[in-house]
Design a protein around this nucleic acid. Structure first.
Length: 560
RNA sequence: GCGCCUGUAGCUCAGCUGGAUAGAGCAACGGACUUCUAAUCCGUAGGCCAGAGGUUCGAAUCCUCUCAGGCGCACCA
C-alpha cells in the first residue's frame, strides 16, 4: 500500500529534475511513507521534503511545494495533497481507492496476506532444541511459540520454510541423565542410595525408572553401573524425546526435521564423523591451531572476544565443535537464510558461532539469531525461574491445561522476544474470560454469526463479490478498510525484522474497530444494497482476522 | 572488569530504519442490553518515557555517561 505512494513520490522527484526544478541528483531512498497517527494528517504521509531540504539547501516547505506540483496532476486515486507542519506531505485518498482495496482483499480470500517476497528461497528456522533431559517448561513454550510463528510468517512471506529441532543428545549431560534414572531405579527397588546433586531431580525420572522396573524387573541390579548406563541413558532420552514431541503437538507445533547432535559424531562406514571432517578442514585452512594440548578456533580474528577451544585436551570435542559442523551442514543443505531461536542464556555463543561461520567463509549475514529472554513463573509473590535441573518448573502441558493452547500462544506472542517477562499463572487462569485472545476470537465469531443470520433472512448465501462497495461511506467503514489493508505490509515487515509480537497488537486494533462499528451501525438492515456492501466489508475483516490468527496458530472459532 | 537485553500510566506491555498532541489491555470510577452474541460498547481518570548531557528543523526512539533489574563472558553441557 505504502509502496504505491512511494513510487508516486519517486516519479515526481524525477520529473522535478527533468523540468529543472531540482538539480540533477540521485533520489534518496531513505525517505519514509507512513500512515499518520492522526486522521487529519491524511491516509499517508511522507517526510521526503525534509530529507531533501538539506541536500538542496532549501527550506523543506519550498521543496514540498515543488513535489506537490509534480504530484498533483490528474491522479484519480488521490483526492488531496497538502503540505503540513515542518514539511510533511500528506496524501488523502479517494474512497474509491479504498473500495478497490477491499475488493482485492476479498478476491484473494484465504491467501490474503501471502507475499512473493521470499521468492521460494529456502529458509530454516531452528527452535526449541531443548535438551532431551526433561519435559518442556513454559520457558521452552515461549521459544516454541515464537519459532513456530516466525516460521509461519516466513512461509506467508513466500519463503520455503523448514522447521528443525536440534536434539542435544550428546555429551556429559546425557551420562548424567542416564545416571539419574539408574539411581532412581535402584532407590525404587529399595537400595539406600542418594541422588547426586548434579542429577535431574524431577518426578518424571522416577516414572521412567518405574517403567524400566515394569519391563525388566530387578534384573539390572546385578549389572555394573558402567554396563547399565548406556541402556538407561538411551531409554531415558528416547522416552523424554517422545514426551517432548507430545508436548509440542499439544501446543500445535510440528517440526519437519529432528536433527540429532549425536549423528555429527558418528562415522558411518569407518569414515570420519562430520565433526572430525570439519575440524580437519579447518586445520587445513589454518582456522584452528594447537595450544596447551587443545585445539583452538581463531575466533578473535573474526569478531569474537577471544579464541575458543574446539577440542579439549582430553580429546573430547566442545559444544562449539558440533555447532560448527551443524551450521556448516545447514548451508550445505541449501538454506539461504537461517534463523536460530535461542534462549537468552545462550547469547554468549552468538558471536562465537558467527565468527566460526565467517571463518568458514560462509555468509554470516544469512544467519539471524532471535534471543528469547527468560520467562519467570510468578505464583502469588513467589518467583520461580525455569530450570530443568532443579526440577522446579511449570511444565508446558500444565499451562496448556490451565489456560488452553490458544491463550498460551497468544500470551507468549504478545511481548517482544527481547523483553523478559513474568508469567503470572494465577492471572492467566483468572483472565480466562477477559483474556485478549477471546476478545479477538469473539470478533471473528461475531462476524460468522452475522453471516449465518444474513443467510437465514435472505434464504441464500450472501455474495460479497457482487456488492456495490461504493456504498461504504461511513468513516468507521473506511477506517476498517484501511486497517485491513495494512496486513500485507505487516507481513512484509515481520518477515524482514522477525517480530511476531506485532500480530497480536494488530489483531487487537482490528477487533476493537469491529466491535465499535458493530455497536454503532447495523449490518443487516432494510436496504439490501447497503446490507450487501457491509457484509462484504465484514467478509474482508473476517479474512484478515482469520489469516492473522492462522499465522499465530490460534484458532478462529465460528461461534463462541 | 567487559559484552548483550530491559527500564514508558497503579500492573502487564506496544510505540516501525528519528516525525506532528506518547498508546492499548488489565485494575479504578461513571454510563449503555426490547434490535445482527453485553466474552461487547461509550465516557472519566491516570505520564519528569529511569536520570544527566549531546547530535538537529524535530528525540521515548540515535550517541556518551550514571543508576536499577536480568543474562552472558569455560579445555560446562
Amino acid at each position: 500500500m505504502k509502496n504505491i505512494i512511494y513510487k508516486k513520490i519517486n516519479k515526481a522527484c524525477r520529473q522535478a529534475i527533468d523540468e529543472g526544478k531540482f538539480p540533477p541528483m540521485d533520489i534518496p531512498e531513505n525517505f519514509l511513507v507512513e500512515i499518520p497517527k492522526e486522521e487529519k494528517h491524511g491516509d499517508f504521509s511522507t517526510n521526503i521534503a525534509m530529507i531533501l531540504a538539506p541536500l538542496l539547501k532549501k527550506n523543506p516547505r519550498e521543496v514540498g511545494k515543488i513535489i506537490i506540483d509534480m504530484l498533483g496532476q490528474g491522479d484519480k486515486e488521490i483526492s488531496k495533497i497538502e503540505l503540513a507542519g515542518p514539511g510533511f506531505i500528506n496524501f488523502f485518498m479517494e474512497d474509491a481507492f479504498w473500495h478497490s482495496c477491499l475488493k482485492d482483499v476479498i478476491r484473494q480470500g484465504d491467501n490474503y496476506g501471502r507475499l512473493a517476497l521470499g521468492r521460494d528461497k529456502k529458509v530454516q528456522v531452528e527452535f526449541v532444541s531443548a535438551n532431551p533431559t526433561g519435559p518442556l517448561h513454559i520457558g521452552h513454550g515461549r521459544g516454541a511459540a515464537v519459532g513456530d510463528v516466525v516460521a509461519n510468517i516466513l512461509d506467508w512471506a513466500g519463503y520455503d520454510v523448514t522447521r528443525e529441532y536440534y536434539i542435544n543428545d550428546a555429551g556429559e549431560q546425557m551420562r548424567t541423565l542416564g545416571l539419574s534414572t539408574l539411581v532412581r531405579y535402584k532407590q525404587l527397588l529399595g537400595k539406600e542410595i542418594e541422588l547426586p546433586e548434579k542429577c535431574y531431580q524431577g518426578d518424571y525420572i522416577k516414572n521412567i525408572a518405574q517403567e524400566i522396573i515394569d519391563k525388566k524387573g530387578e534384573t539390572l541390579l546385578t549389572v555394573s553401573d558402567e554396563e547399565n548406563l548406556p541402556f538407561f541413558t538411551k531409554y531415558t532420552a528416547d522416552t523424554i524425546l517422545d514426551i517432548i514431541k507430545d508436548d509440542l503437538k499439544g501446543f500445535g507445533v510440528e517440526f519437519d526435521t529432528w536433527y540429532s547432535e549425536n549423528t555429527l559424531f558418528e562415522d558411518p562406514d569407518g569414515e570420519k564423523s562430520p565433526v572430525e571432517k570439519v575440524v580437519d578442514w579447518m586445520r587445513e585452512k589454518n582456522f584452528v591451531y594447537e595450544s596447551e594440548g587443545a585445539l583452538w578456533l581463531r575466533a578473535a580474528a573474526f569478531g569474537d572476544d577471544k579464541d575458543r577451544v574446539v577440542r579439549k585436551g582430553t580429546g573430547a570435542y566442545t559444544y562449539l565443535a558440533s555447532d560448527i559442523a551443524y551450521h556448516k551442514e545447514k548451508f550445505e543443505r541449501g538454506f539461504e537464510r537461517i534463523v536460530n531461536v535461542w534462549g537468552a542464556d545462550h547469547h554468549g555463543y552468538v558471536s562465537r558461532l558467527r565468527s566460526a561461520i565467517k571463518a568458514m567463509k560462509l555468509p554470516d549475514e544469512a544467519l539471524d539469531v532471535i534471543l528469547i529472554q527468560l520467562v519467570n513463573l510468578k505464583k502469588g509473590d513467589e518467583m520461580i525461574s525455569m530450570s530443568t535441573r532443579s526440577g522446579q518448573f511449570l511444565p508446558l502441558t500444565d499451562l496448556i491445561k490451565d489456560v488452553g493452547s490458544d491463550a498460551a500462544r497468544f500470551f507468549f506472542l504478545m511481548r517482544s522476544s527481547d523483553a523478559q517477562f513474568d508469567f503470572d499463572v494465577d492471572l492467566a487462569k483468572k483472565q480466562s474470560s477477559d483474556n485478549p485472545v477471546y476478545y479477538i476470537q469473539y470478533a471473528h465469531a461475531r462476524i460468522c454469526s452475522i453471516f449465518r443470520q444474513a443467510e437465514e433472512r435472505m434464504g441464500e448465501k450472501p455474495s460479497p463479490q457482487t456488492a456495490n462497495l461504493a456504498l461504504l461511506k461511513l468513516p468507521e467503514e473506511l477506517r476498517l478498510i484501511k486497517k485491513i489493508s495494512e496486513f500485507t505490509g505487516l507481513v512484509e515487515r515481520m518477515a524482514v525484522r522477525l517480530e511476531p509480537h506485532l500480530v497480536p497488537h494488530y489483531l487487537n486494533e482490528i477487533a476493537s474497530e469491529l466491535h465499535s462499528y458493530y455497536k454503532k451501525h447495523r449490518v443487516l438492515g432494510e436496504d439490501n444494497a447497503i446490507t450487501n456492501a457491509r457484509l462484504a466489508l465484514l467478509g474482508g475483516i473476517r479474512l484478515t482476522i482469520k489469516n492473522s490468527l492462522k499465522i499465530l496458530g490460534v484458532s478462529a472459532p465460528e461461534s463462541m
